[in-house]
Design a protein around this nucleic acid. Structure first.
Lengths: 343, 343
DNA sequence: CCTTCACGTGCAAACGTTTGAATAAGGCGA
DNA sequence: TCGCCTTATTCAAACGTTTGCACGTGAAGG
């Protein structure tokens, strides 16, 4: 099972030169004759030489590896972000080591530890729902360790963040519902302590306010798991009890929107005629539903790309970057489909 | 940005002992006094010592890292598999380095190269649609390098594979359609050269044959991209031209099934009354559709788990395992929903 | 003929661990 | 008192690179 890879020493022995010469020849250092370079490269190819990245990293104390910490992989948005990360990392010669926290704080901490032990050059994080204490990040930040946060960003000073304009997206969604003539617009909110949930809720409230609609306290219900079953139950409950009844739902994510849609259908309510629904994230299935689901698209791939570019730049510069200047807020886009358009 | 981690040498200097003592004390080697061990561990904790995994790997020529090569991350099934992989790897102290090939052969090759350069201990692969030549794998296999293939497995001798029983799943799906009274069952097939596509098609044909149904050549149409738009176009075409007209579709994946469903709806055909549809993979959205989509569930998470267990066992044993004995075929399960049940 | 310089290469240390073998210090029996 | 065993520790090499510096050679310049 050992691969018995040829090493620089093997090449050196074969050609009767020193390891340094081999090393330099392979890297096209000046001061090595063309002749030697040619011979070395030929032999390297012939022996299928593959540099030992570990040794190189150890020597250079740079591993060309970045760590990515994500709540869960099986999630349309996050997997899209990963895809973007992977693209840029690959293109720039970096490896990606990935762990998912499954929304567990403890796992987030230990993952970071093993990643650091593996000498990652930088870290990209979207933290877990459980995480309330950010000291494991701030300790690193203090030492100027390169970290870029994406999507879910902590309330810490001077961090590099890549987020999506949740506020505007939510505002646009709510505004659209209002313009369609819906008035009693309920909000299926995300976990309170996540900044994204707060922003979405804020956008929702602003839109209502701007249009002179006074939301009742019971219009906002937390659907923290964000899956369709939870939302379905919650919605069913609302439809039974709430007075006045909602005539629209703005959900903090698409799964919740689908749950609401199901509950409405089961309650015999027509979407969009009697109830309007808008989700958030634009998961693949939005266009597959009947009626198709209006949703706020988040540029996940872009987020991965930009966040990685930011991180790699930060690593390359080996210096600080002005967080306030370099943090990014990506645009969201409301995609209006059938579920929110009154006939 | 350098983290300036304390090293064994730092601890040694501090305590006025040698590096070896520190190393052994930390690892609870016999032959180190309890007193010393205590002191070392205390200091290590105090100085926030974190062993340099790179150095360790270099020395031990084992990196506790495995490589995972996957066609694409943004894919329900594959992301589920990754999740399973990640769980097991994490639990057993292995890192996962991940790359997606985007179905490109060239990228598959270069990814393997950089992973090998990074001294991965083993490899898990689901190869790309483009890959026709498997020599990059067979070369490694010859040297007894640990590889486990999952889902898409190559036609090579003596490889460790974890697959899903595509044949039986397809058979069950087709049989179910027949039993529901559908007769002219078309098959939206996957890329010809993928073993999974072949198996699914084989199961489809077997079922037809067992029930004495003679498929016409035009009943099988390749929908190789496997996305809903392609399938929708293909299906629309079929509905217009095929004679006799299909009364059911068995699609090689759920996206294609959705495409078919859309095309049927647009052609004014009622599902399941006039047309039955069954997909494959049981993506999340199956239950969200109206009518809900019958599908063959594949245990993706299980696949990730079992494949990783197999690989890590193989690595630990540092020896061969009997591929024929250890390869796994996981059970599929037909989930019957509305799209295929005649009223 | 001696210095100077450029060129091509080699030496050796370093990165942070691990580990077989050597060493030192006690303790104990004869 | 000597030898021997045990116990705790150190030495030094190794893993495969990279890299500052030194070295040797031959040619050009004075």
């Amino acid at each position: 099972m050992k691969l018995d890879q040829a090493t620089i020493k093997d090449l050196a022995r074969e050609l009767n030169v020193s390891s340094s010469t081999i090393s330099r020849a392979l890297k096209d250092y000046p001061g090595i004759s063309e002749e030697t370079k040619r011979k070395v490269k030929e032999l390297a190819a012939k022996m299928n030489y593959r540099p030992n990245a570990l040794a190189r990293s150890l020597r250079k104390s740079q591993s060309f590896t970045i760590g990515v910490i994500i709540p869960e992989v099986v999630h349309f948005f996050f997997s899209t972000v990963i895809s973007g990360i992977e693209e840029v990392a690959f293109a720039r010669g970096y490896n990606v080591i990935l762990t998912q926290t499954n929304e567990k704080y403890i796992r987030e901490k230990t993952s970071i530890d093993t990643m650091l032990a593996n000498q990652i050059d930088g870290l990209m994080v979207s933290y877990s729902k459980e995480t309330k204490d950010f000291s494991h990040f701030s300790e690193l930040l203090e030492k100027n360790f390169p970290i870029v946060f994406f999507d879910r960003v902590p309330k810490l000073e001077n961090t590099l963040n890549v987020t999506v304009d949740d506020y505007s997206g939510a505002y646009a969604a709510t505004q659209h519902l209002i313009q369609q003539g819906y008035r009693k617009i309920f909000h299926l909110a995300g976990p309170k302590y996540l900044s994204i949930s707060q922003e979405r809720q804020r956008g929702y409230l602003s839109a209502l306010e701007d249009y002179g609609i006074q939301p009742q306290p019971n219009w906002i219900i937390e659907s923290s798991k964000g899956n369709e079953n939870e939302a379905r139950d919650i919605t069913a409950e609302i439809l039974k009890k709430a007075d006045p009844r909602p005539d629209a739902f703005f959900a903090h994510n698409d799964m919740a929107a689908v749950g609401a849609m199901m509950a409405c259908r089961e309650a015999g309510l027509k979407v969009p005629d009697q109830i309007g629904i808008v989700g958030f994230s634009d998961w693949q299935f939005c266009t597959m539903l009947e009626p198709s689901l209006s949703s706020v698209a988040q540029p996940g791939f872009q987020m991965g790309v930009r966040a990685t570019e930011l991180l790699l730049d930060l690593i390359d510069k080996k210096g600080d970057m002005d967080a306030s200047k370099n943090s990014l807020v990506l645009k969201t886009e409301l995609l209006i489909r059938k579920s929110s358009q009154k006939p």
